[in-house]
Simulated scan of single mutants.
Amino acid sequence: MNGTNGQDNLRRMTASLPTGTDPLSVRQRIEGLERLLEGLFEVPLIGRRVGLDAIVGLVPGIGDAVTAAMGLYLVWEARNLGMSRLQVWRMIGNVGIDALVGAVPVAGDLFDFMYRSNSKNLKIIRRHLDKHHPHTRIIEG
């Protein structure tokens, strides 16, 4: 892993995050947080991106609790967007599965590497935003 590249990515992401409560600002914040948690670095040889969720999850005990709290921030943003209770509970379930299974020594660390609860939750939020706030849609090239 190239540490300097990851630090540069982190600086760029945090410098550009908006603080507003409008749907576009929320979209930008949650997409930045998802990149931080799930895709900050690329693992050489296998070409898979990992983020703080998999890395901090290696710390016994507290790692999974910290990343679960960060994942719950996405749920909080979803609730503030007015998403349905079903969607919010589904997102809580994704974070819960990640935290519970991720807390199992060794096997949980592999699970954290493969199961991307924050990416799943971002997909749920994006669907909501695309339907109810289409002006926030960002065309990726």
Rank of each mutant, 00 (worst) to 15 (best):
L37F: 09
F113A: 13
L110S: 07
E34Q: 13
P44V: 00
N94F: 15
Q87F: 07
T14I: 15
H133I: 00
V106K: 02
V59I: 13
L129N: 03
E42G: 05
D98E: 05
A69G: 13
Y73N: 07
V56S: 04
E31I: 00
G61V: 01
I30E: 01
F41M: 02
G93T: 11
G47L: 08
L58V: 06
T136V: 06
L36P: 06
L37E: 05
Q7V: 10
E77A: 00
E140W: 14
G141K: 07
N118Y: 07
V26F: 00
I124L: 09
D130E: 14
V66H: 07
S25Q: 03
R116Y: 03
R126D: 14
L110H: 12
M83L: 13
P105T: 01
G32Q: 02
D109F: 15
R85F: 03
I46V: 15
N80C: 11
R127F: 09
G20N: 07
V66I: 13
N9I: 10
E77I: 00
M70Y: 12
M13G: 06
R48C: 08
G32L: 01
R29M: 05
R29S: 09
A69Y: 09
E38G: 12
Q28D: 14
W89M: 12
F113Q: 03
I46P: 05
M91P: 05
G3K: 12
T21M: 07
L122Y: 08
K123W: 01
L10Q: 07
H128S: 03
G20K: 01
N94I: 02
L10A: 06
G57H: 08
I125H: 00
P105A: 10
K131N: 09
L24I: 03
G20Q: 08
A99Y: 15
R49G: 13
V66E: 04
L72Y: 05
L81Q: 11
E77S: 00
A65Q: 11
L17H: 06
R11L: 13
L110Q: 06
A103F: 13
V106I: 11
A69S: 14
T21L: 09
R35V: 04
D53N: 14
L129E: 09
I139T: 06
L74A: 04
G71S: 10
N2T: 01
F41H: 06
A99L: 11
L45M: 08
E34V: 07
M91F: 15
G3C: 10
L74G: 04
G96A: 15
S119R: 03
D112K: 09
G3R: 12
R12D: 10
R127H: 07
D98T: 08
L40K: 00
V56D: 07
G61F: 08
M91Q: 02
W76I: 11
P105D: 12
R35N: 11
R27V: 02
D22Y: 05
L110D: 07
V56Y: 02
A15R: 04
L74C: 08
S84V: 01
Q28R: 10
S16N: 14
G102H: 11
H132S: 15
